[in-house]
Nucleic acid binder design. Structure first.
Lengths: 274, 274
DNA sequence: CGTTAGATGGAAAATATGTTCCATTTTCGA
DNA sequence: TCGAAAATGGAACATATTTTCCATCTAACG
C-alpha cells in the first residue's frame, strides 16, 4: 500500500474512498461503507462508536483511517469537524497571532477584515431563521410608519435602512438623536420600530424601544446573541452575530440582512397594492 | 443557586440561558454569550476550545456547564451531539435551501444579498492596491483633522467611519448636511477629507471635495470605477466595486475597507506617538 | 495439506480530555 | 477601610479515548 498523504477535504476523501473500496479487505470495507453512508457521524463520534456502527473492532477502524492516509482517527475527525463548523472558533486566536507576528501591514489588516466579513456572511446564512424573517417583514409592511433606531455603532445600519426604505417609497422616520433630541412621542399604535443594537447595548436605543412599546408600536429587533435586552420586548428578533476584531465589528452580515429586509418589504407592499 | 435538572433539549437550554444570563458573574456570562452565539461549536469542540472561544479558563467553562444543570461539559455536549443528526448543512447547501424557498421569498432575497456581499469582498481582496492603501493611511494619520463626507447611499459608510475614528481618538468631523448646512469653510490646510461616493455620484459630495481642495486639504477618495469625478481631484483613490443585486448595492466591501482604514490609522498614530 | 502473507481482535500503553480542588483575587456590603 | 463571600485561575487528578503492538486466525497458493 502506498504511503498516501492525508486528504485535505471531504470531497477528496470521498474520492479516495471510491478508489479503494474494491481493494479493501472485509473489515476495512465495512468501515468504508459506514463512513460513506454516515459522513455526518464522524465529527461527533469516538472511534469506538464508529467501529460499533460499522460492525468492526476499534483497531480495525483505526487501520482504516491509516489506509486513507491519515495518521489516525483524530486527524480524520479534525477534517470533518472543521468542515462542519467553518473555522472561526479560533478566530480570535488567529488575530492575536497576526498581531504578535507584527504583520499588521494595512493590506494584512484588510485581508483579516475581509475574512471576518466573509465568515459573518456565511454564519448569517447558516443561522438565520426564515420564519423570523418572514414575520418581521410582514410586520413592517403592515406598518403605518417605520421608525428606525440605531445609535453609535449601529447608526450606520440605521442610516442605510432609512436610505433604502426611502428609495422604496416606504414611509420612514430615522431617529438620529441630532441635538440630543429624541422623538419618543412620535410612536403610534400601528407603527413599527426597527431597533438595532449590539453588545454593549446602547441604553438610548433600548429606552426608545420601551417607549415605542408603551405607545403600542410593534418592535422588530436586529441584535446579536440571546442575551440582548431587546429580546424581552418583542418576539420579532433577527439575530446576527458578527465576527469581531477587538472593538470593531464587521457589519457585512448586518447590512446584507438590512438590504434584504428592505427589498422584501418593498416587494410585499407592491403585492398589497395590487 | 437551585439545583436544577439538566435541560433535555437545546431549546430548553436556550431558555435557561436567557433566564440566567443577567444573574451570572462576568466569566460565566462570557460563556453564556459564546454558547448562545455559537451553538454549533459545542458539538465538535473540547472544553478547552470552548473556553478559549469564550475567553475564559476551562475551569470557568466547567462551572458554567454545572450552573446550567449539567453534571459537566460532557453531558452538555452529548445533548448537542444528539441533535446534530439534523445536520446543519454547510454554507453552500444552506444557501441553496434559502434560495429554494421561492423566487422572491425573503430568504431567497437574503441569500442573494449574502452572495453579493461575498463576491464584493472577494473582489476587494483581489483588486485593492496596497500602495494606494498605504498612501491613504499615511495621509490620514498625518492629518490635523479628518473630515468625512459621504451622503445618501454613502452616508452609512461615513457614519461608520466617524464612529470608528472617534473610538480610536482620531479627531474627526462628520459632514452630515443636517439642515442643509454645509461646513465647507471648515477645511484647512493640513486637514484630510475622506470623500465617499458611488455612481450616480452625489453632487454635494463632489462639491465639498472641490472646496476642500481649494482650501489646501488633501483628499482621500473611496469610490468605484475609473470614471468617478473624484479621481481628477486626488491621487489618493481607493477603488471598491461592489456587486449589486437589483437596484441595491451591497456595502460589505466598502465597510470592510473602512474599518481596515481606521484600525491601520489608529496603529500608525500610536507608532508616531512612541 | 502445509506454509505463509495478510487480516483480525484484544489488551496494554500513550495521549488527550474532562473534572475537581484549593489558593488567590476580586467584589460587595458593613 | 476592613472583612466576608463569591469568583477566578491554576494545577493536580481522574477518566475517556486513541493508538500501538502482538498473538491468533484466515485464506490463498504451491
Amino acid at each position: 500500500m502506498d504511503v498516501l498523504s492525508a486528504p485535505t477535504s471531504i470531497e477528496e476523501l470521498q474520492d479516495r474512498l471510491l478508489d479503494l473500496a474494491d481493494s479493501l479487505p472485509k473489515r476495512l470495507r465495512q468501515c468504508a461503507d459506514y463512513v460513506a453512508a454516515n459522513p455526518d457521524r464522524v465529527a461527533v463520534s469516538t472511534v469506538a462508536e464508529m467501529a460499533a456502527g460499522a460492525g468492526v473492532k476499534p483497531s480495525a477502524f483505526m487501520r482504516f483511517c491509516q489506509v486513507l492516509g491519515f495518521s489516525g482517527f483524530s486527524q480524520m475527525q479534525r477534517l470533518f469537524r472543521e468542515s462542519y463548523s467553518q473555522n472561526w472558533p479560533d478566530y480570535t486566536t488567529r488575530l492575536e497571532k497576526l498581531r504578535e507576528s507584527g504583520a499588521d501591514s494595512p493590506s494584512a489588516l484588510l485581508a483579516e477584515f475581509i475574512e471576518a466579513g466573509r465568515l459573518s456572511l456565511e454564519n448569517l446564512a447558516k443561522t438565520i431563521d426564515p420564519r423570523a424573517l418572514d414575520a418581521a417583514i410582514k410586520a413592517i409592511s403592515e406598518a403605518q410608519l417605520v421608525h428606525i433606531v440605531g445609535l453609535r455603532r449601529a447608526f450606520s445600519v440605521a442610516a442605510y435602512l432609512a436610505y433604502a426604505f426611502e428609495k422604496m417609497n416606504v414611509p420612514t422616520m430615522l431617529h438620529d438623536a441630532v441635538g440630543k433630541l429624541d422623538s419618543r412621542h412620535a410612536f403610534r399604535e400601528g407603527d413599527v420600530i426597527i431597533a438595532i443594537t449590539f453588545a454593549p447595548y446602547t441604553a438610548e436605543t433600548v429606552d426608545l424601544a420601551h417607549a415605542a412599546r408603551r405607545a403600542g408600536a410593534r418592535i422588530v429587533a436586529i441584535t446579536d446573541s440571546l442575551t440582548s435586552p431587546l429580546r424581552q420586548l418583542t418576539p420579532l428578533v433577527l439575530t446576527v452575530s458578527e465576527a469581531d476584531f477587538g472593538a470593531f465589528r464587521s457589519l457585512s452580515a448586518t447590512l446584507s440582512l438590512a438590504v434584504a429586509l428592505v427589498v422584501a418589504v418593498g416587494a410585499a407592499e407592491r403585492e398589497v397594492k395590487k
